[in-house]
Simulated scan of single mutants.
Amino acid sequence: MNEPARHHRPVRRADLTTLLDGLSATEPFGREEVAEATAAAVISHGRSGQSDSLVDLADRVGLQTLAELWRDSEPDTLAGALWALYLLRTWCQTNGEEVTRLWRAGRPLAPADEVVAGVADFADPQAILSLAESVLSGAYRGDFAVALERAAAFFRIVSLGRIERADDGPDGDRARELASRNAAVAAGLTAAARRWRAAPLD
């Protein structure tokens, strides 16, 4: 028997901000539940085929709104993975030159990850932004696990680029700290991809 069609409510700014109203008084466990529930709702809505692309969700509701919902989630969770994807897009929008320099420094050190990420051969800020947007588009229109793996590959290369460009001294220490964070996000996204393949929402 065919299941009746499910109707998905639009993801509106009001829907997300209403959820935020009570978060300050919510216990950590409750916050995790809210984060995962909202991430699952966004993914289900975006992949329903009944909506416009949610690539620009951060533009529509504000990155800070998504940060309050998802920033504290581990990157191997659905909420943490979505946060990483939207943060990556915003980073590529606002700091494209820096991201491009890090990518160019790191990609010779990880040729397999370069192929997985799928940045154009001549990487410039526009190509880097196109990668971030195609990853988000793929998360909603294609294989979500593949999108996460592409983002993970990108973060690994950026991590290597930071290390490659790091100098001695305080600035170098900061670069290595950020490289470690990028590598941790990459590992989390890879784990999230495995989890999705084991139990997808759709």
Rank of each mutant, 00 (worst) to 15 (best):
A5I: 15
R6G: 00
H7T: 11
H8S: 05
R13L: 10
R13H: 08
A14C: 03
L19E: 14
L19S: 11
L19A: 10
D21F: 09
D21S: 06
D21M: 09
L23D: 08
S24N: 08
A25P: 00
A25D: 07
G30W: 05
E32Y: 05
E33K: 03
E33L: 12
E33G: 02
A35K: 03
E36F: 02
A37D: 09
T38M: 12
A39Y: 00
A40P: 05
A41D: 04
H45N: 05
R47Q: 09
G49D: 07
G49K: 11
V55S: 02
D59P: 02
G62V: 15
L63M: 15
Q64K: 15
Q64I: 06
Q64D: 15
T65F: 03
A67C: 06
A67F: 04
E68W: 03
D72K: 03
S73V: 02
E74L: 01
P75W: 09
P75N: 10
P75A: 08
L82E: 13
W83P: 00
A84W: 09
Y86V: 02
L87V: 07
L87C: 01
L87T: 13
T90R: 13
T90K: 06
C92M: 11
G96C: 10
E97L: 12
E98R: 15
V99G: 01
R101F: 07
R104E: 06
G106D: 04
P108L: 10
P108G: 07
L109M: 07
A110W: 14
A110D: 14
A110C: 06
A117R: 11
P125G: 09
Q126P: 00
Q126F: 12
Q126Y: 14
A127N: 02
I128M: 10
L129V: 05
S130L: 12
S130Q: 10
L131P: 03
L131A: 04
E133G: 00
E133P: 00
V135C: 01
L136H: 11
L136D: 06
L136P: 09
R141P: 00
A145R: 14
V146Y: 15
A147D: 04
A147H: 07
L148Y: 14
R150F: 03
A151M: 08
R156S: 11
I157H: 05
V158H: 00
G161Q: 08
G161N: 07
I163F: 01
E164D: 15
E164N: 14
A166W: 13
D167Q: 14
D167S: 15
G169T: 13
G169C: 08
G169A: 13
G169D: 11
P170C: 03
P170T: 05
D171V: 13
G172R: 15
D173Y: 08
R174E: 11
R174V: 04
A175W: 14
A175P: 06
S180W: 09
R181K: 15
N182R: 10
A187L: 10
G188P: 06
L189P: 02
A191R: 10
A192G: 05
A192K: 10
R194T: 07
W196E: 05
W196G: 01
A198I: 13
A198D: 07
L201P: 03
